[in-house]
Design a protein around this nucleic acid. Sequence first.
DNA 1: AAATTCATGAAATTTATATTTTATTTTTGA
DNA 2: TCAAAAATAAAATATAAATTTCATGAATTT
Lengths: 277, 277
Amino acid sequence: MLETDKAEAPRDFASLRALLLARKDALPKRLAQVAGYAMANPDDIAFGTVASIAEAAGVPTSTLVRFAQALGYQGFSDLQLIFRSRLRDRVLDYDERLRSLAEHARGVSKPALLFAGFSDAAEESVRSVRERIDPHRIEEAVEQLISAETIYLIGQRRSFPVTSYMSYAMGKLGIRNVLVGSSSGTDAETLSFAGAKDAAVAVSFTPYASASVGQAKQLAEQNVPMVVITDSPFSPLASLGAVWFEVVEADYEGFRPLSATLALAMTLVVSVAEARG
Amino acid sequence: MLETDKAEAPRDFASLRALLLARKDALPKRLAQVAGYAMANPDDIAFGTVASIAEAAGVPTSTLVRFAQALGYQGFSDLQLIFRSRLRDRVLDYDERLRSLAEHARGVSKPALLFAGFSDAAEESVRSVRERIDPHRIEEAVEQLISAETIYLIGQRRSFPVTSYMSYAMGKLGIRNVLVGSSSGTDAETLSFAGAKDAAVAVSFTPYASASVGQAKQLAEQNVPMVVITDSPFSPLASLGAVWFEVVEADYEGFRPLSATLALAMTLVVSVAEARG
DNA sequence: AAATTCATGAAATTTATATTTTATTTTTGA
DNA sequence: TCAAAAATAAAATATAAATTTCATGAATTT
């Protein structure tokens, strides 16, 4: 790695990426670290200064220069040009897209169709739900949750990914929460401790899992303020929450993308965190 | 035009554009020339140096500085930040759009902005990932999974919603699976039964949860065919799978929408089910 | 038309940024 | 395990870039 590698030094992003990939095991520790950071944060490389990038990547500035030179560039600035050109011509990005589409256009396989279908469903769900959600409702929902000591998260079956992501996010943001239904079997007991000082978020879609309905009812009886996310005004959950959201996701091949539900769920979590300061 | 215009100085591209439009007749000749150049070549402003931009626009460097200051910016570099953020990523672009929306139409609350942000991140993730995924890879992945006796699902933290949804879907479709990491604590033992007759799907994103990495390594050692979904070629998981997917989701407020990952995950599940007939 | 204000561009200055050097640590090979 | 080679990080240097100054020219006002 001492001498500059003769002749090479990719002048476009794709080649650079390939080069790094090929080399990643042979690179010294710090240089590999830079390579990883660069591929993960290409935009930062494009705009940053050696100082700012070095700090973000956790290396001294000289390492960045060495990195560039090891790849055959004249210096870091030279390498940086590649990252900038990547942002510059989005046209190329588009070209690339068309090429790959053309390549695979004929003989479209079943999995490819499915992927396109699920992607479409995800986009469509987000688009339609974002138009239908009333922002005031979100504020009201945050109101319910903001002063809760503990937030209980109810969701079974296909709602469980939603509540588990909420639980993860709340954990990261320091919001005390209990994820109900995680196969431990002691849910009713766990919930018996909840009271008016707490709050809950219940997520359930047709066919409404009986466990979720039961748990939500139990909490309602214990006067726990509740926010409900469901898919119809006729849902048994709808009337239990002080605030409830109707989220109708597109169905594709019997499954729903969850994209819109997750967006709403994350909004609630982050809003509560921000409101708490 | 001598003194800096009090208070103003747009912090987003849309507002800046509007400001220039409103002012263009009142601006002195050279400054108008710069304004015209800037709106016609925003990318050049983002990347260039005062010297290069000045030359391209046909004005002396000092004019660029005066231009920026006349608009209320501290200097040219300050103005340049607006042009850079515009390119940075589309999520931010959208964020900016919303902020300027909020400026004009008062009363857009923080939660509403967040919801729009998460929704947009979800859409953007799906859009960008669907372009980058190679359909052949999906077929290869299905190949790995199709004849598995049991499919092991590995995912911690923010990947857990993905694997739990896969587990739910597989259950509905009669695909035998084991969801690893569901807080039971007996994972290593569970995994020890896996062999070449089985298969696994591992999902992990930066910062890669050590449990996931360990579990995936264990399965790799036991010759379990594996499909990996991760976010970088430098991921420790990438090299473990016979097939691996790079899925980079937009980051918004520190969280990712998961929409694209879920679409891919569901594609795999349903594809396997259909291939099995 | 003269006086004043404002805009302009070249050059000087200041600030920031990248690169090189060098001493030290780490890794590699005998 | 030791010696040599390579990699690393802090500091020094060199380079580049942004900003300010100032003398000059163009508009505007009375």
